[in-house]
Measured scan of single mutants.
Amino acid sequence: TVKFKYKGEEKQVDISKIKKVWRVGKMISFTYDEGGGKTGRGAVSEKDAPKELLQ
């Protein structure tokens, strides 16, 4: 599970739902399947990112 803040809201998403991951400076950005055909997005700092996300 990845915990992150998006627009001031605390969120979390299961690693299995993450589609795409990329690095922006010291942040790790990602998109994930929100269900219902929607794609969500989020970002975590490199130090807070789970190891599975960095692979």
Rank of each mutant, 00 (worst) to 15 (best):
54 L>V: 10
18 I>W: 01
5 K>F: 15
5 K>L: 13
8 G>D: 08
50 P>V: 04
9 E>L: 08
8 G>R: 03
1 T>H: 11
38 K>R: 13
25 G>H: 05
13 V>T: 06
19 K>V: 12
12 Q>S: 13
32 Y>P: 00
48 D>R: 09
32 Y>D: 00
51 K>M: 13
16 S>I: 13
15 I>G: 02
45 S>F: 13
42 G>I: 03
35 G>T: 06
32 Y>W: 10
45 S>E: 13
4 F>D: 01
12 Q>G: 04
41 R>V: 11
27 M>N: 08
10 E>K: 08
35 G>C: 04
38 K>I: 12
9 E>V: 13
24 V>G: 04
21 V>G: 02
12 Q>L: 13
16 S>W: 10
44 V>L: 10
54 L>C: 05
15 I>L: 13
19 K>N: 11
7 K>N: 12
7 K>A: 08
44 V>I: 15
14 D>F: 12
17 K>C: 09
7 K>M: 11
27 M>E: 06
26 K>H: 12
31 T>H: 05
14 D>T: 07
3 K>V: 11
16 S>Q: 11
4 F>C: 03
36 G>W: 08
43 A>S: 14
44 V>H: 01
4 F>A: 02
32 Y>K: 00
34 E>F: 09
53 L>V: 04
40 G>D: 03
24 V>K: 10
45 S>T: 12
36 G>F: 13
47 K>H: 10
49 A>F: 11
24 V>D: 12
3 K>M: 09
30 F>A: 00
49 A>M: 05
17 K>T: 10
40 G>M: 09
1 T>V: 15
50 P>W: 03
49 A>E: 01
35 G>L: 06
11 K>D: 02
52 E>T: 08
19 K>P: 01
33 D>F: 04
49 A>G: 02
47 K>Q: 14
33 D>K: 04
25 G>A: 04
41 R>H: 14
11 K>V: 11
50 P>C: 05
42 G>L: 02
2 V>Y: 02
40 G>L: 10
22 W>L: 03
6 Y>W: 14
6 Y>M: 06
12 Q>V: 15
52 E>N: 06
41 R>F: 12
13 V>P: 00
9 E>N: 10
46 E>L: 14
13 V>I: 14
31 T>K: 05
22 W>Y: 07
44 V>S: 02
6 Y>V: 14
4 F>H: 02
29 S>Q: 15
47 K>G: 11
22 W>A: 03
49 A>D: 02
29 S>P: 02
13 V>H: 01
48 D>M: 09
17 K>R: 12
12 Q>E: 15
24 V>H: 15
48 D>H: 13
46 E>Y: 14
12 Q>A: 10
50 P>M: 04
5 K>E: 08
12 Q>T: 15
50 P>D: 03
8 G>T: 05
26 K>D: 12
38 K>E: 10
54 L>P: 02
7 K>Y: 09
25 G>C: 04
42 G>H: 02
26 K>C: 07
39 T>N: 05
53 L>I: 07
1 T>R: 07
27 M>D: 05
48 D>T: 08
17 K>A: 14
28 I>M: 03
24 V>T: 15
33 D>E: 08
45 S>I: 09
29 S>F: 15
18 I>P: 00
36 G>Q: 11
40 G>I: 05
54 L>N: 03
50 P>S: 06
20 K>H: 11
32 Y>G: 00
52 E>R: 08
44 V>M: 11
15 I>C: 03
22 W>G: 02
45 S>R: 15
20 K>W: 08
3 K>G: 04
4 F>Y: 06
35 G>F: 04
40 G>K: 07
24 V>S: 14
55 Q>F: 12
11 K>F: 09
37 G>Y: 05
51 K>P: 14
20 K>A: 10
37 G>F: 04
31 T>D: 06
40 G>R: 06
5 K>C: 10
51 K>W: 15
6 Y>A: 06
53 L>R: 01
16 S>A: 13
2 V>F: 14
16 S>T: 11
